Simulated assay, not measured.
Amino acid sequence: MTLLDPTLSRRAGLAAITKTLTAAGIDPAGSDARFLILGVLGLTPTDLALGGDESLGSEGAARLRSAVARRLAGEPVARILGAWEFWGLPFELSPATLVPRPDTETLVEAALARCPERSRPLRLLDLGTGSGCILIALLAELPNAFGIGLDRSLDALLTARANAVANGVGERAAFLNGDWGAAIQGAFDLVVANPPYIAREVIAGLATEVREHDPVAALDGGEDGLAAYRSILAEVGAGGGIAPGALLFEVGHDQAGAVSALGRAAGFGAAEIVSDLAGHDRVVALTPKPRS
């Protein structure tokens, strides 16, 4: 690794880190280097732009050397920093939570599209809330909504609670420990879920950043990747105690058809499929059939 001397300027340090990551074949090296220098040194983009000639200093250089070594070993930037941005909001992470991904913003957008009157006092349920990013993003956009985030990991729930408070929606959010919908009953305007959907045998072949640093429980979707969808659909809608105005799932890029079929079999009407920015089917939105 290129030596990060304490006398180097922030701008020169950024260039050195970028060069090191590029040489290691890490892509995108430039953005990873920028995130590291901003996060590790506690800088804003404005700080870097206006104060780029300031030296790294002994402590800053040492922290950056450690962070770059971790990145070279395959650890994702978000894990190194312990936080990541989603929907323009900051989220703390823990070993029990996934790193929020841009694809998941498609789920938030699809849910908001079903809320033409955003000032209504809506009831939301987020199954498998993790860091709370989906629920908190929705609450940030729906000022009179109340939401419940459910997860089987207490560590994840503590992280989600802290994130709700930090993002100013703590008074409108509650967090519940349980397995999918088995721990709760009632009617909700929106039920959202980004469940584990990776087929078990595929996990060993995932990128190091995912395989070695994301919680396996948040990845493992069973033998065919659909186990969590089946469990949720057994508890939401006609077959269970949760009555949704709409149920929205994030799905793997090749799972929309299968999840739509599971929804129909569980008593929902025709599914709407929403694509992400890359053109992949990313969200399956299910609506209960109207009562005759």
Rank of each mutant, 00 (worst) to 15 (best):
S94W: 01
A140W: 00
L138Q: 01
P116H: 01
L150T: 13
A113G: 08
L157Y: 09
P95C: 10
P76M: 01
S119W: 05
L124F: 06
P116T: 03
V77H: 06
G130T: 08
L157I: 10
A140N: 11
G74L: 06
E117S: 05
E109D: 15
R161C: 05
R101M: 04
R71L: 11
L81W: 09
L138I: 04
R65D: 14
L93K: 05
R70Y: 00
L135H: 12
V99Q: 02
L125P: 12
E75Y: 02
A96I: 10
A156Q: 11
P95Y: 05
A156P: 15
L122K: 08
N144F: 12
L157F: 08
G132H: 08
F86N: 10
G60S: 14
T97W: 03
V108K: 02
W87K: 03
L72W: 10
L127I: 15
P76S: 01
L93M: 01
L112K: 09
G132T: 04
S131T: 15
L135C: 13
L107E: 03
R65K: 10
R71F: 07
T159D: 10
L139N: 12
A67R: 07
G60K: 09
R152C: 14
L157K: 06
L112M: 08
L154N: 04
A110L: 01
G60F: 09
E117I: 00
G130W: 07
I148E: 04
T129F: 14
A160Q: 14
E105M: 11
E141A: 15
E117W: 00
I80G: 07
A156V: 14
E117P: 00
L157R: 09
A96C: 11
S66V: 15
T129Y: 13
A73M: 00
T97L: 06
N144A: 13
F86A: 09
T159A: 14
L64T: 01
R79L: 04
P100D: 11
E141Q: 15
L107Y: 03
L124E: 06
S66A: 15
L127D: 13
R123L: 13
V99A: 05
E141L: 01
R161M: 13
R63G: 10
L98T: 02
E141N: 12
T129G: 14
R114F: 00
R114M: 07
G74W: 04
R101Y: 06
T106S: 13
D126P: 11
A140M: 00
E141W: 01
E92M: 08
